[in-house]
Computed example of a mutant assay.
Amino acid sequence: MKLPRAIQDMRTIKMLLTAAETQAQRAGDGLPGPEHLLLAALDLPDGTARRAFERAGTDPAEFQAAIDEAHRQAMRDIGVLAAGPSRPLPEAAPAGGLYRLTAPGQEVFQAAVRLAKAGRRSPLRGAHVVAAAGDQERGTVARALKVLGVDRGALTAAAGEVLTGH
């Protein structure tokens, strides 16, 4: 028996936002942003976010390292040199309750939901988040994709192809 789309969406949203919150906490960030949503989408069980990255010609496992490099480059650009490798932060449990996102994170999440609704029969999937995040011209996701050598438009198109089965 298939779950109604609304129930599927709620489960996906809970997984996505809980994982994004955990990603943000691990990174020492107060609230999840687009990069945390994208990292969370890559781990969704539907696998569509990973397939979109692969279709765009990049290894999704390299996205976290690209985020780290984008942050290092941004720090170098403003004249801050890293003292050495940072130590890993302890595992953080999600705070629970209401989910909150940065303003750009909210934009990406809302755009992903709009994309899913536009698909009428498609529940929210990881590739919706990829397409929404790929549309951002600035920010950590755009810089990390540049580090990976991935064209944002190509990634967004790949996400659309994965969603439509082409």
Rank of each mutant, 00 (worst) to 15 (best):
A41W: 00
D43A: 13
D43T: 10
L44E: 07
T48M: 09
A49K: 08
R51V: 02
A52F: 07
E54L: 14
E54G: 06
E54C: 04
E54A: 14
A56G: 01
G57N: 07
D59K: 08
D59M: 08
A61N: 08
A61K: 09
E62M: 11
E62I: 04
A65N: 14
A65F: 08
A65D: 15
I67R: 12
D68T: 13
D68R: 13
A70S: 05
A70Y: 03
H71P: 01
M75D: 10
M75I: 00
M75E: 13
D77I: 01
D77Q: 14
D77F: 04
G79K: 05
L81M: 09
A82Q: 13
A82D: 13
A83D: 15
G84R: 06
G84A: 12
P85E: 14
S86G: 15
S86M: 13
P88N: 09
P88G: 09
P88W: 06
P90S: 11
P90T: 07
E91V: 15
A92L: 06
A95M: 06
A95D: 00
A95H: 12
G96N: 08
L98I: 11
Y99G: 03
A103D: 15
P104T: 10
P104S: 12
P104G: 08
P104Y: 10
P104M: 11
V108D: 02
F109G: 01
Q110A: 15
Q110V: 11
A111P: 01
R114E: 14
L115Y: 09
A118L: 14
S122T: 12
L124F: 09
L124M: 08
R125F: 05
A127L: 02
A127Y: 02
H128V: 09
H128A: 09
V129M: 06
V130K: 00
V130A: 04
A131C: 03
G134V: 04
E137H: 12
E137A: 15
G139W: 07
G139Y: 07
V141K: 04
A142I: 13
A144T: 02
A144I: 02
L145P: 09
K146C: 04
K146V: 05
G149P: 07
